[in-house]
Design a protein around this nucleic acid. Sequence first.
DNA 1: CGAATGCTTCGTCTATCATCGAAGTATGAA
DNA 2: TTCATACTTCGATGATAGACGAAGCATTCG
Lengths: 225, 225
Amino acid sequence: MKEGPDISQIGALIGDPARANMLTALMGGEALTASELAGAAGVTLPTTSAHLAKLEAGGLIAQRKQGRHRYFALADDEAGRLLESIMGYAANRGHLRTRPGPKDPALRKARVCYNHLAGDYGVRLLDRLVADGDVTLDGDEAAVTPAGEMRMAALGIDMPALKAQRRPVCRTCLDWSERRSHLAGSLGEALLARFIATGWAKREKNSRAVRFTGEGEREFMALFP
Amino acid sequence: MKEGPDISQIGALIGDPARANMLTALMGGEALTASELAGAAGVTLPTTSAHLAKLEAGGLIAQRKQGRHRYFALADDEAGRLLESIMGYAANRGHLRTRPGPKDPALRKARVCYNHLAGDYGVRLLDRLVADGDVTLDGDEAAVTPAGEMRMAALGIDMPALKAQRRPVCRTCLDWSERRSHLAGSLGEALLARFIATGWAKREKNSRAVRFTGEGEREFMALFP
DNA sequence: CGAATGCTTCGTCTATCATCGAAGTATGAA
DNA sequence: TTCATACTTCGATGATAGACGAAGCATTCG
């Protein structure tokens, strides 16, 4: 008697190299066009189109029409978390797409995980918030304390706006390089956006890497030592 | 430029329905023979043999020869956690192998997750330990406090023996039915073994379900309300 | 209203791989 | 040593689905 969820459908979706490349590209958080994804996956446009249709049918990605462009992005945070957790397993087993290159340390230091900050800096951020009593963890759920809300407001985060949304403000996400959790959810997204808006950090072109400026690094380290 | 781990190999391994069925069967925690797995997957022995070779090459399972039998089991806790997290995603998307049947409530209440307790009871257990200050969480890492060690000793768990092993004593594992974490690691394994040894709970035949006896349920609820 | 861009659909081809029956190997029992 | 059990390997087959070129829609720009 069969019981439990069917993992083979999702496995099959992720199991094709072209699709895996597309999903990995989308882990950068940006919505990409079919042409860009074709380039990332190394296949032609018709092939890409077929793959995207399957990924969408499987609920892993969603598309947004905008004029003659169609932008594709991961369907939601949960899809991002799923991919990050599989990446974690793959990385620990040495299933790397290329041998670790010069970019690797930068990725491990700070990178985008769908829409929030990951890597050493991402883990450090959550650690500090928990240690200071700004965020409480309970399993993989997380919550912001009143003290944490004030701290976020001081950083320029509009907490009431985040709480008004239906999506979870605070979640944790398993980091593939650090093997520990970092902060996801709408707050995680807002914080990364804030770091970039204030010029503390910049996104590398065509990469998940996030580069902190000299000043940004000092400020970040002062806030989250 | 490609960067990051390669998730397609793992996806492909899980993506075949026969292999997914075998892995799901192995999530029961017991080591199974090739014949048993053939039955679970619904394929013949030669096919099973080929699949098992691939799963072993991919590092998801390990085999142990014992006389003329070969027992297959999940390679380690990490493989179990990976599968449970994918199951969580699949369950939330309605990717079920069969429509939820009469067994489903029992599975959600208490079941085996590789080698530890999952479901409502598993989540409840960890919640209680954290609330009582017996276990501390830090991301997905977890640790037992001195108070927790005493409590475990009172339950008949040989903590020094667990700590002497190389494998982590305390880990968290995302529960697919509860969407929250439960206790894994060697302590999680030891606790489930203890519940069964004391007759509080029994494993259902050919199922991941764990059935608590009347007395076991009372004791468990008294300890972890 | 063309023309150009961006993507999808169609048809076809090809290669991979899951599958099985039959034969082979290894271990244990008689 | 011989038979039986448990599994693997081999060889052949068939189905799936990933790939592309060409043609077809849709949208925007000149």
